[in-house]
């Protein structure tokens, strides 16, 4: 089993931290995991479109190549979809998870698309639009790739206690509220 995922966000939204937490949760479940940032465009500037990646596997991961054909794509900020082809390389049968309150039409019908109001949840729980932890909660629900308990553990070990608790609330809300393809 090797699952590869790509995260689209803007600099400052915590896309790399999201990849790291997903890897951390998978590792806590006894899997091998790797997370890494996108290279290019002069680095991660606040607001610029960025990408982060993660691999999860049953066996040690030797690959250090870029992920060209992910199994999963997560979009933190749907406004990016106007300038970045978030579907590029997504495997047929793959999963697209978008932070959106409303369904967004995408140009492929050979994938499964899910939506979660992660931005809204982040404002409610954290008071600011950092939706990476909410999206991990949604990811846990739709894929089972990482369990909700280990996600909460990964969040707990990433942040100071008070911030961690707020993020865990975001994880749980998103876990409940994610919708889309059945």
């Amino acid at each position: 089993m090797l699952v590869e995922l790509r995260i689209h966000g803007r600099g400052g939204q915590g896309s790399v931290a999201m990849a790291e937490m997903i890897a951390g949760a998978a590792f806590a479940e006894g899997k091998f995991a790797q997370a890494f940032p996108y290279l290019g465009g002069g680095g991660e500037r606040r607001g610029a479109p960025v990408q982060a990646y993660a691999r999860i596997s049953d066996s040690p991961i030797k690959l250090r190549e870029k992920i060209e054909e992910p199994d999963l794509v997560i979009v933190q900020d749907p406004s990016i979809m106007e300038m970045v082809d978030v579907l590029a390389g997504l495997k047929p049968g793959g999963i697209l998870l978008i932070n959106s309150e409303e369904p967004i039409k995408v140009s492929r019908d050979d994938i499964r698309t899910f939506f979660v109001p992660a931005g809204k949840i982040a404002i409610e729980t954290l008071g600011r639009p950092i939706m990476n932890t909410a999206l991990i909660g949604a990811l846990s629900r739709i894929t089972g790739l990482v369990g909700i308990d280990t996600v909460e553990e990964a969040v707990r070990s990433k942040f100071p206690k008070e911030i961690a608790e707020k993020n865990i609330l975001a994880v749980r809300k998103a876990y409940e509220q994610v919708g889309g393809a059945a």
């Binding site: 951390g24 091998f32 995991a33 790797q34 997370a35 890494f36 940032p37 290279l39 250090r64």
Partner: peptide, 10 residues
């Protein structure tokens, strides 16, 4: 750089 310095793994 990046491939090792900014990657996460066990």
């Amino acid at each position: 750089g990046w491939v090792l310095s900014h990657s996460y793994e066990p």
